[in-house]
């Protein structure tokens, strides 16, 4: 328990495992770049299957991120601002998809929205068929991405505290006005990073999608599913598409980082 702090503010020996960890994350990315078939890169990316998959991935990830915002912001507000006793249990259950293997999520969704599922039969009567549709992909992505948004926003809300909200309320602002003019602007950075995390998680969703939505070009075969299928016949093509997903992820995180620091 000695305290030989370096100028970094952390014990120097921490650097070794930290560097090892960074290498462990970065080296596989280098490996993907090294194995990318640059000669065929353009042709691989412009193939109809790749474009369908990329376009579908972007569309569904955007839709599920919007759904996450609509459902997740109120959830985070309730979790952070109310003092109901059983809320701790509710929070743990609602955040379960965070730690659940996605394939388990897919099975759970199947038995909920599937044809013979809890809600599926009612929906079938109403003429709504979810299974094997793009909507199923969005549901699967929302299911796994929602906790990411809720967790980061709830953390931001707790950090921001209720001081300004209380002041606004004593000055006569109605709860909705306080939420719109005080709370949300205060936690905007947390909201942005939560949204970005949710989008990235939705973009990478694989297990729940393949279990619940199936795999059909242009309808349910998102980029991760296309990569997995491409590996069957064309390992190089799979690597090229993987790189696309890496680049998109880097772009998303980069854009979010800039927007956060600008605030």
């Amino acid at each position: 328990m000695s305290d030989p702090r370096s100028r970094l503010g952390v014990p120097r020996w921490i650097l070794l495992p930290a560097l090892l960890g960074a290498g462990f994350v970065l080296l596989p990315l280098v490996a993907i770049v090294a194995r990318t078939p640059w000669g065929r890169f353009g042709e691989l990316l412009t193939s109809q299957a790749s474009q369908d998959a990329l376009w579908l991935s972007l569309r569904t990830a955007t839709a599920s991120t919007l759904l996450c915002l609509v459902l997740g912001v109120p959830m985070a507000l309730v979790l952070a601002r109310s003092s109901y006793r059983l809320l701790g249990v509710v929070r743990s259950l609602v955040l379960l998809p965070l730690v659940l293997p996605p394939v388990v999520g897919g099975i759970a969704l199947l038995y909920t929205f599937g044809r013979r599922g809890l809600l599926g039969q009612t929906m079938e009567v109403l003429g709504i068929q979810v299974a094997f549709s793009t909507a199923a992909v969005v549901l699967a992505q929302t299911f796994v991405a929602l906790p990411f948004l809720v967790v980061s926003l709830e953390g931001a809300l707790r950090t921001a505290g209720e001081r300004y909200e209380a002041v606004a309320a004593t000055l006569g602002a109605r709860p909705t006005t306080v939420l719109r003019r005080v709370t949300l602007p205060l936690v905007l950075p947390g909201l942005v990073s939560g949204t970005v995390l949710a989008f990235a998680r939705a973009l990478g969703e694989f297990g729940a999608t393949i279990t619940f939505a199936g795999s059909l070009q242009g309808r349910t075969r998102t980029l991760p599913l296309e990569i997995y299928l491409r590996r069957e016949t064309d390992a190089e093509g799979a690597v090229a598409l993987s790189l696309v997903l890496v680049v998109v992820a880097v772009l998303v995180i980069g854009v979010a980082g800039q927007r956060r620091s600008a605030l």
């Binding site: 199936g214 795999s215 059909l216 299928l229």
Partner: peptide, 11 residues
Amino acid sequence: TPVSEEQKVTD
């Protein structure tokens, strides 16, 4: 005209 083309027989 399948609604899904799975990767494995088990799927």
